[in-house]
Design a protein around this nucleic acid. Sequence first.
DNA 1: GTCTGGGGAGTTTTT
DNA 2: CTCCCCAGAC
Length: 767
Amino acid sequence: MGGSTPESEKILKSLDQRQREAVQTVAGPLLILAGPGSGKTRVLTSRIAYLIAVAAAHPSQILALTFTNKAAREMQSRINALLPSGGTRGITMGTFHSVMARLLRMELRDGWLPGYTAKFSIYDTGDSERMIRQIIKDLHIDKKRVEPRRIRAVISRQKNMMISPAAFEQHARTPDNKLIAQVYHVYEKALHGANALDFDDLLLKPLELFRRHPKILDKYRRRWRHVHIDEYQDTNLVQFRLSHLIAQEHRNICVVGDDAQSIYAFRGADLRNILNFKDSYPEAKVVMLEQNYRSTATIVRLADRVIKHNVQQVKKTLHTDNDEGAPVELIELETGQEEAEAAAKKILGHCSRVGAAFRSLPQYDYRDCAILYRTNAQSRNFEECLRAEGIPYRVVGGVSFYQRKEVKDALAYLRLLVNPDDRSSTLRVINYPRRCIGLRTQEKLADYARLHELSLWEALNRIPKLPVGAREKRVLGDFHSLIAQHQARLTSEPPHEVAKDLLKMSGLLAEIAKTGTDLARKKVDNVQEVISAIAQYTQDMQTGTLDAYLQSVALLTDADEGKDTANKVTLMTLHASKGLEFKVVFIGGLEDELFPSSHALRDADPKKLEEERRLFYVGITRAERHLYLGRAKSRLMFGSTRRFQLSTFVRELDDDLIRESSSANPTSTLRGQHLGGGLARSFSSPKRRQAFGMPAKAPRLPAPVGSGRRYTAEIRPGVRVRHPTFGDGRVVSIKGLRGDPREATVLFDNRGHKNLVLAYARLRVLG
DNA sequence: GTCTGGGGAGTTTTT
DNA sequence: CTCCCCAGAC
């Protein structure tokens, strides 16, 4: 193994001693405990390349599980770069969920799991919730008592812990849990009846498959001789069992993770996987990677101090040889808008030629900057400010392409083609667009189906027998033949052609286009894009089937879409930032109840608080050179302005770690730079503001509305405004503070009076 | 039975 | 703004 070849030289060249040790351990269990910025992705990719180049493993023997699809793609291309001869094709790489979905698609063809076919639908959280809502209705449960959202979460948690409906029912003590157990039962049956798998099933079903059919397990044990799992701290019990089943015989399993970066406990991630790795693999070699190559010493020190406040953790000492770098700045301002402006100014300071030159710092690209926040809702302020400043940006998450309503509707039609038993999709489109199949008729259909243990589609196959009137039979028949016809065509014609026709014939495209607005056109374009995506995906007819497309699309996440090639500032949640790095990072909303979230504070559960602190740690360690922490003293939340205290996470830190600063005016940052180590005071108090030549009162909410610099403050009675769908009109009255109106009554020239919530309606002031 | 429109509520994080 | 619910019109 020690033999040195040109390829192994190349692979090992860029690594330090510890990293090399990890890479060269090619057999047996290996646990790599890697701090942030320690080059763990590099180690993982080098190790895989090394296995292929030096240890002569065949690529197809390698299984590499990543946290996101994007990480898998990146890893693939990095490995290819290390192995100029190529030959990496055949590596099984992807997220746990996507790899298992592919496996199921292969194996379910032969009916290994009764009732499921290879054309199963994948239900996302929304679909699951929809099902649960339906079940609650059927069971006549009062929705006020246990809301569907919570039920879904509880059920998911049980599935993550491999607790069956029966087992959950046995241990259910509270009336709520007894109710949920009941729903859980029906939910599982409904999924099965719909030939559908939720996210948890994508992992549970392979487990079941392996248990029931040792032959299949054996096949994969022999196939995947080298198992790699990245972000191991965020795996759950099912994932542990799965990987253990595959690896326990050959024991070539390499896991990489950092307990301090575990931020997905709410989703079932179980730290015991990484903490107790040695229990399952006592002979495991452990390599600690503690040197940080990413961030300045200042940032590393801050991260280290933050995480020291957690009791629950493996002792690790982060260190770095990097330079001190700039101080971390805490920016305290009055409102969320000002905070967003400060972020924009800071970014301009780094990315504009003037700003960078003034500070005699290297000029960065927009793509080197990121704004991170706790909740998706916080992106709005930042977006508006960046737009007003003309700074290009992209928002990761939020409403991503595949989450838009029109896209989901289109996908529901297509899912129905592939898997007609798909109940959630049926209910979604059976009366959309309107075809006179009302709730009563749907109920009767569902009742009939339940009585005879049929799926909705199977019930539709027996329309003459349904207990509905003649008119209803006709409309149901029309719907049935619409789907059936296109389904038949799918066997002989290209999928995108069939999809195009179905979306047209169903009336969906016309329904979306109906209003004729710009927004409508955009929605139509989105649906067209789905059709072209299918065309592209199914070009390779070997693997590119419509069902494969639909299944892969269900597993796409916001973090996967990013085209990093575009020179734009990245906006995303702290969760989505995991694994990424940026030269300049701005973390916004460092206030109690926002970050840490109210949930973590309210429950006074140290575990939850510690997870939030780890999230802060993750955010801090994304920064390579410059880190800014933003905080607003009051913030608009749920429609009213509330005061917030500085985040516990900042208060608990020693003062010398962070420098206070303010960028309420553009030069203050620049000035602050020349103060050296000294403390630039916060500009938030009137006295201080005046001392720095600023108006004593903080300017009132300059909230830009829509594109351009239109502020809600300008909206007052008598003003002419334009609405994207209602056209022009005149403001009659406003609700809320003067200068900070919340709602406006507008008399439109063609539409009469409308009440508009300004936070949502994209009103533009005319003139 | 079905459709329309007004009213009310909704925001942690996500494979 | 979007989703859901409910009353009342057709």
